[in-house]
Structure formats: C-alpha cells, structure tokens
Design a protein around this nucleic acid. Structure first.
Lengths: 159, 159
DNA sequence: AAGATGAGTTCTAAAAAGGAACTTGTCAAA
DNA sequence: TTTGACAAGTTCCTTTTTAGAACTCATCTT
C-alpha cells in the first residue's frame, strides 16, 4: 500500500496517520507547540534537511494543521502557526511526551514540565471517560463497530 | 540527522518518536490494540510488505513494546502481544483515534466506537490534569524546563 | 505425494531522504 | 558601492528505504 492510499481507509487511525504519521512531522509539531514558527528555526533545532522541511510544512499547511502567515512585507517573510485543528493535536502530544517521560527516561529526569495554568501545578496528562469522568486504561475499553463501519474488520473482542 | 541518532536526544518526544514515529508502526500498534497478533493477519489487514512487517515487529519487540510468544510447538508458531509498556500507549492511540474522528471524518460516521466497561457508555477520551482533574487544552498549559533540561531549548513561553 | 499454513527471507526496481550548495529579495555596514 | 547577512526556499546528486513479487522451510491435512 502506498501512502497516498491511506487517506481512503475506513479507520480514523489510518487517516490520522496519513497526515501526522511521519517522524519529522511529529517533531515539527512538537516544536510548533513550543512556539517555534520560522523555517530556519525549525531547521536549526531539528537538524532536518531544508528540502524535507519545506515539504513537510507544505503538507501540514495543505492539511489545515498549520497556516502560513506573513509577518512582514519587503522582504516577504512567513511563519507557520498551528490552526485550531492543529491545536487539537495537543492531547496527542501530551500523550507522546508522557509516554516518553515514563518509558524512555535516560536517567536525567524530565527535560520539560507542563504546568496547568488553572491550578498552578506541574502535572501529567490523564485520559478520562467523557461520560463518567473516570480514568480509562487499555483494559477498561471495549471496541465495537460504529455507524461508519464497513469492514469485516476482525474486531472480535473478548478473550 | 539520521534516525538512529534520535534516541540520544534530550526531548521525550524525540525519543518516543524514534520508537513509534513511523507510519507502519502506528498502524501495527492500532491492530495490536484490536487484538491482532499474527504475522499473516497483520500482513493481510495492513497490506504491508512482509519484509517491512518483519522489520517493524522485530523493532517493536526490541523496544519492549511487543513480546513474541510461542502459542504452539511443532511447528513453532509465534504471536505478538503488547507488553505493559505497549499497553501504556493506549492514551496515545485514543488521542489518535479521537482526533481522526473529529477532523478526518469522511462523512460515514465513526467506524469504531469505544465503550467504557466501568460505566457502560460509548465515550470520547478527555485529557485532564493529574493534580486537579480539570480538562486541559493547548492554551491551559505552560511549558517550562525540568530537571533533565540540557538545552538552550528555545522555550521562551509567553506572547 | 500434493497441497496448505505460518512465518519469514531474498531479489530488483522505484521512491524517499540526506547533504551540500545555490537562488532571490532586501536591508545594513565598510 | 560592493560586501555580507538574513529568511525561506530550490536544485542536484548520492545513499537508504520501500514496494512488490517470488522463494524457503518445517509441519499438518487430504
């Protein structure tokens, strides 16, 4: 399967992966959440080839995750900012960071902390159920076909 | 920068991305959470080249996310199952699915629903603060250097 | 003896990424 | 007034990865 075929898949994960499932793209997005906005800043921080960076930024703009905005004329200069759609990736980023903090610790402690402005404390992200508000783990969830199902999807839960 | 250099980065996201930041890897993990466990099942569902599938499964095992386990002798047959470390990726997967549901809907409705066993309802994942329990969005979080910081990291929050 | 199964491996061609240098428009300094 | 710097890309060429298809190998089944 080629990558441009992925967005036609029935699965939300597959469609999401077609957009953000690339190493550089994820690192670019991390930097976006750290308020990096300019081409050369991304390039210097990531050590990414300029060529690939240009390509990934273009794709993120095409997908509506970033917007390219002029911050000066003469000479025209642009910066890249997260759209609302892009900002909605925040829970994903938090999950990524948190998993890394827990499982990929190199012994030096956390390089970055997240402070919740509302309560003032450094925190970890916790995923809870939108209905009852209780935390949900992998074993608390039962997956079943929804209205958009169109597969023999092999989702035989149980066991 | 080459991919094998990524795991030496200071950032948790970078280290996490070095492990799961690959399109096939993410899709393989999605299937793992749907209880797919065998080589040929992954291959048939994903349409991935067998060659790459073998490589990705090997890497996931090396990274402690999956474990390869015999389910019969004569002939020896193995299956791949999530370890605890792998199961901890659940919030990430939920975030991925949810973002896709919200932003990549193709109009057919959700192909998969998640039911919270404890409360019995279909739900969406909500990310909350581990300290105060309130939901956190991108704008509610202030990022600042932690004990493992070793950068001129460019994290000038504010503005 | 002739398939079928499961879990891979091997091969070649095509696609993607890495690396480094080059371009373009504008301003600022020597 | 030439020189250099800056920001944001492009171009070109080489090295790696992937795709796609076929092949292997040990065991069951018919």
């Amino acid at each position: 399967m080629r990558w441009n075929e992925l967005d036609r898949e029935a699965c939300s994960v597959a469609r999401t992966v077609s957009v953000i499932g690339d190493r550089w793209t994820l690192l670019i997005l991390r930097d976006c959440f750290l308020r990096v906005r300019r081409f050369d800043d991304f390039q210097a921080r990531l050590g990414i080839t300029r060529h690939i960076l240009a390509d990934r930024l273009r794709k993120l703009v095409d997908d509506g995750i970033l917007r390219r905005e002029a911050y000066q004329d003469r000479p025209k200069r642009h910066e890249y900012r997260l759209t609302e759609k892009g900002l909605d990736l925040h829970p994903l980023m938090m999950a990524l960071v948190h998993w890394g903090n827990v499982h990929m610790d190199d012994g030096a402690g956390r390089p970055l902390l997240h402070r919740h402005r509302a309560c003032g404390h450094d925190f970890d992200p916790v995923t809870v159920c939108s209905v009852c508000g209780e935390p949900v783990g992998a074993r608390d969830v039962h997956v079943h076909p929804g209205p958009g199902d169109r597969g023999p999807g092999l989702i035989q839960n149980g066991q």
